[in-house]
């Protein structure tokens, strides 16, 4: 059986910066694969190339054996790839449930209907999805009033709307309290196992990663430096040097300013 996702020799440079260099890996259905690495390691860039946000300079991305690299995000989404963003991307002028309905409308090819009442379409299905991520009670609140952690849940509900085969989650628990983090990841894990979805996620919280990932990849300055079961990664000497040596720094820097490039470079520029 072919892997759900097969990435080979992926590369991307921005100006002179090699954001991603020769990254290859595979992901099976029902598997939770974590991609970790210091700020600026190239994780989000990888995600962006897999879901079509960015075209890779070279390399291949195959979904279920079909090449998808370079296709636009909306096509890749239709092939069954859901995504959440590092900085939650939701529709601020809509209610929570409308955010999810939007994805369902798109899924059913109803975007260009000019007359039907959108708020009445797919509402029950959207409510179910919200219930699944624990937001059933807040369905009719404006999305703009939600706490950041809750926005991440909305994103998850949206990402699940097209019954994806592959879920890409960029820091799904950022902005959440520790207990909440584990609850959300547990929830994700249950859904994934139940529906046989493959998940690729990044996370700066090591507790979450080691508690929930089936497998871990470590990215540093655009290159994969290690890959394996959590226990193996924990013991990997190179990973320890490059990553855990400054692990604490990463975590504090991240908490202070999510995605701050300045802090990220410092962390990534540890000992060579």
């Amino acid at each position: 059986m072919t892997a759900l996702l097969k990435v080979q020799g992926l590369r991307k440079t921005f100006g002179g910066v090699h954001a991603v260099e020769d990254v290859s890996f595979e992901l099976a259905s029902g598997e939770l694969l974590a991609m970790i690495g210091p700020n600026g390691a190239g994780k989000s860039t990888c995600f962006n190339m897999i879901n079509g946000q960015l075209a890779p300079d070279s390399g291949s991305v195959a979904l279920g054996g079909r090449e998808i690299a370079g296709r636009p995000p909306r096509e890749i989404w239709r092939l069954g790839v859901g995504r959440t963003f590092q900085v939650a991307a939701t529709y601020a002028s809509m209610t929570v449930v409308e955010n999810v309905q939007m994805a369902l409308l798109s899924l059913h090819g109803q975007l260009f209907r000019l007359w039907a009442r959108a708020a009445a379409l797919h509402r029950s299905e959207a409510l179910e999805l919200l219930a699944a991520v624990g937001l059933g009670q807040r369905a009719d609140e404006p999305c703009s009033t939600l706490a950041y952690g809750d926005l991440k849940r909305v994103e998850l509900a949206i990402a699940l709307a097209n019954r994806p085969a592959l879920l890409l989650m960029d820091e799904p628990t950022a902005g959440m309290a520790p207990l909440e983090r584990n609850a959300l990841m547990q929830l994700t894990r249950d859904l994934v196992k139940e529906r046989g979805i493959g998940v690729l996620f990044t996370e700066h919280s090591m507790d979450v990663v080691f508690a929930h990932a089936d497998r871990i990849m470590v990215l540093a300055r655009g290159r994969l430096i290690a890959e394996g079961a959590p226990a193996a990664i924990r013991d990997d000497r190179q990973v320890r040097e490059v990553y855990f040596g400054s692990g604490r720094l990463v975590r504090t820097a991240h908490a202070a300013a999510p995605g701050s490039a300045a802090a990220g470079t410092r962390a990534a520029a540890g000992p060579p």
Binding site: N51, G52, Q53, P72, P73, R74, W77, R78, R83, F85, A89, T90, Y91, A92, S93, M94, E98, Q101, M102, A103, L105, S106, L107, Q110, L111, F112, R113, L114, W115, A116, R117, A118, A119, L121, E155, I158, A161, N162
Partner: peptide, 23 residues
């Protein structure tokens, strides 16, 4: 109030989200 109007607002609110959900 129809899906089309919602889709327009979706594209305005978050092009990123819209594009990655098939809009």
């Amino acid at each position: 109030f129809a899906p089309f109007g919602y889709a327009m607002r979706a594209g305005r609110d978050s092009p990123l989200r819209a594009e990655s959900t098939g809009i």
